[in-house]
């Protein structure tokens, strides 16, 4: 699985796919969906989900970034930034 730096649409698709097993409420996934309020993620679920994202994209998502990631779009953007900086 490779994701190009400008492929935010592609990244979003992968994020939806990774979210499926964590989407216990069956929420309609879209870029604006919020992890905490809409998907009811607690800290344990966040930990598991972040690990899934890291494994799929082969990146490290530091804990420091999490406070700034509230929505699916923000996560996809962060993933793209990390993938890009890892390549650079």
């Amino acid at each position: 699985m490779t994701v190009s730096a400008s492929g935010s649409g592609e990244t979003l698709k992968v994020v939806y796919e990774l979210l499926a097993p964590f989407n216990k409420r069956g929420v309609d996934l879209g870029p604006g969906v919020r992890f905490s309020e809409d998907l009811n993620f607690d800290s344990l679920v966040v930990m598991e989900f972040v690990a899934a994202v890291e494994d799929r994209f082969d990146i490290s998502v530091p804990l420091n970034l999490l406070p700034d990631i509230a929505t699916i779009q923000q996560l996809a953007d962060a993933v793209d930034r990390i993938v890009k900086s890892d390549k650079g």
């Binding site: 930990m47 690990a51 490290s60 530091p62 804990l63 420091n64």
Partner: peptide
């Protein structure tokens, strides 16, 4: 930068 690994999982630590 803070990275967490799975509790007591040395293989997960290695991967990270």
């Amino acid at each position: 930068q803070i990275i967490r690994f799975k509790h007591n999982d040395a293989a997960d630590l290695d991967k990270r």
